[in-house]
Design a binder for these strands. Structure first.
Length: 534
RNA sequence: GCCCCUGUAGCUCAAUGGAUAGAGCAGGGCCCUUCUAAGGCCAAGAUAGAGGUUCGACUCCUCUCAGGGGCACCA
């Protein structure tokens, strides 16, 4: 990655300057190399001079000049056309044609491994997401965590983590929710009743006759609902989980009991008002929590502790939980548990803000929901995925289904897919007569501004993955795909691929092949299809 | 009352403390004897408000206003 190269170069220059006692020792962490916001500022820029200015109490521009002089003592001609100081003291790097032309060759050579990094160092990682309650089909709110989690997992894999996707099923018979579901099944209450559940209840009618309590009935019904959810996730959302963990099973395997006894042995449990409380306020939580109710039944929190203990025990060094906004208060409690259990890995809990329907809330209880299935039937899986993924998790999405439908006629997904279709079309036409031979000699023909601009976008791909694996800002990926498609369409407009000049034709064919690879890799991260014809 | 998230163009959203705040859609004006016009080009349009921190703030801090979520012996 050229960005890393620039950063190393800056580091080397700094060390040399320190050796010559021109500059003091500085903290490297503040020094950044970014993509230049404008073409006239080059391709990459660094704030190194500004950071030094704060320490040296000198003009950033002056420092930049001294710095640049020293930097140019290294052999860097083949990478950069020029490096200059601009604006408030930025150092701008302009990539050389030579470097860009070679980069195309590199992409073709790496093919599907282009963008694969080892920053993850094969660390055992878990992404837990969706984990919807088994009280009805997935709704459009669940779609958010579903697609985000899936893409984050894809991305971390590409970045070199060893990733497992997991779904946690809240099916414990102790859960009030399951018991309420049971009441509904037995006709003792209507809390969750709707057409969907009614049909499921009918289906398990004979089984229900044999049970005599709410919990059992609820468990049976939850099982039935979950069957649907699982099927929908696998067949229609095309998301593959490694593991589906059942809460009830944690009870059956005595994992809840064990952790309860352990916590007691640590002197972290106390009695108050007939219930048993866990002392987590000493570990960063705002207050202590009940783990055993007055009735003697365990709370959801206790089984969740058992679940996290189980995650830790399975050896995950990085755990990412993706939860809905309504679980936000649960975050400090689980963080406290990680402390109590002395978890040494990294536990990230990401909160998806609500998806709101225009004109109303999404609530299973109020019955006014749009299922994810309905949405996908309306706009298609590709469009739906893209729609969710372009927004950061922390914004509340306003969902206008009418708008989504109209956007499905004309939307950015097609814009990107169209770029791919155009590439395929050219390749089809050319392949009818000839073979494509990409070699560096031919690539020297790439000189047009639109050609070079396209290459610059291509080489960003690994950098995008690196950044996103670190900050989880998934919306960067669809944005990148859009930018890449724009660069391609621009190129397509300006440069004819199959032309009189044989060498140039070969060079441009190589370029569009490289573009095809990067588009394919990007969309494979997003889980969106890339048709050859449109 | 306390805690979390959000407030950017007419609409839906971007912008690891960086330079002249970007896209898409909607609306206005151009470009198809040429590898797919589901495309390209041009013009128009925005940081809720008030302070502060610093070389530099949409971004960080304080307050105000507005919206959402949480503060259960629900999950």
């Amino acid at each position: 990655m050229i960005r890393k190269k620039i950063l190393n170069l800056i580091g080397k220059t700094l060390r040399r300057l320190q050796k010559e006692k021109l500059f003091p020792l500085v903290d490297l962490s503040k020094i950044k190399v970014e993509h230049s916001p404008k073409r006239e500022y080059g391709d990459y820029c660094s704030n190194v001079a500004m950071v030094l200015a704060g320490i040296l109490k000198k003009e950033p521009k002056e420092i930049a000049k001294i710095f640049l002089e020293k930097l140019q003592e290294f052999k860097i001609e083949k990478f950069f056309e020029k490096i200059e100081v601009a604006g408030a003291g930025f150092i701008n790097f302009f990539l050389s044609k030579n470097y860009l032309q070679k980069a195309v060759f590199e992409i073709l050579k790496k093919d599907k491994d282009f963008g694969r990094l080892n920053v993850g160092k094969n660390i055992k990682t878990q992404v837990e997401f969706i984990s919807a309650n088994p009280t009805g089909p997935l709704h459009i709110g669940n779609g958010r965590g579903a697609f985000f989690g899936d893409v984050l997992a894809n991305l971390l894999e590409k970045a070199g983590y060893k990733v497992e996707r997991e779904y946690y099923l809240n099916d414990a018979k102790f859960n009030t929710q399951i018991q309420t579901l049971g009441k509904t099944a037995l006709g003792k209450g209507k809390t969750y009743l709707n057409d969907y559940l009614q049909s499921k209840i009918l289906k398990i009618k004979t089984k229900l006759k044999r049970v005599n309590n709410d919990a059992e009935a609820g468990y049976l019904l939850a099982k039935e609902v979950f069957k649907d959810i699982k099927n929908f996730i696998e067949k229609e959302l095309k998301i593959k989980f490694h593991k589906w963990v059942s809460e009830e099973e944690l009870y059956r395997k005595n994992k809840v009991k064990k952790i309860y006894q352990w916590l007691k042995a640590q002197n972290l449990v106390y009695q108050k008002e007939g219930a048993e409380w866990l002392k987590i306020s000493d570990f960063g939580a705002p207050k202590d929590e009940v783990i055993i109710r007055k009735t003697g039944e365990p709370t959801y929190f206790l089984s969740d502790i058992a679940y996290h203990k189980d995650k830790f025990d399975r050896g995950f060094k990085k755990i990412i939980n993706i939860w809905g906004a309504d679980h936000q208060g649960h975050v400090p409690k689980i963080k406290a548990i990680a402390k109590i259990l002395n978890y040494k890995g990294k536990l990230d809990i990401l909160i998806c803000q609500m998806v709101r329907l225009k004109g109303g809330k999404i609530s299973k209880r109020k019955g006014k929901i749009i299922t994810l299935k309905e949405l996908i039937e309306e706009v298609g899986l590709d469009v739906a995925r893209f729609f969710y993924l372009t927004k950061s998790l922390s914004t509340q999405m306003e969902f206008d289904i009418k708008l989504a439908k109209s956007h499905s006629q004309k939307n950015p997904v097609y814009y990107i897919q169209y770029a791919h279709a155009r590439i395929c079309s050219i390749l089809r036409k050319y392949k009818k007569q000839n073979k494509i031979e990409a070699n560096i000699k031919n690539l020297r023909c790439l000189e047009h501004e639109s050609e070079l601009e396209l290459v610059k976008h291509l080489i960003k791909f690994p950098e995008i993955i690196e950044e996103t694996a670190q900050d989880y800002q998934i919306q960067r990926i669809p944005q990148y795909a859009l930018d890449l498609a724009t660069a391609f369409h621009q190129f397509y407009q300006d440069c004819r691929v199959i032309c009189e000049d044989q060498k140039l034709t070969q060079a441009r064919l190589a370029l569009i092949l490289a573009t095809k690879i990067v588009l394919r890799e990007t969309f494979s991260l997003l889980g969106i299809s890339l048709p050859e014809k449109m």
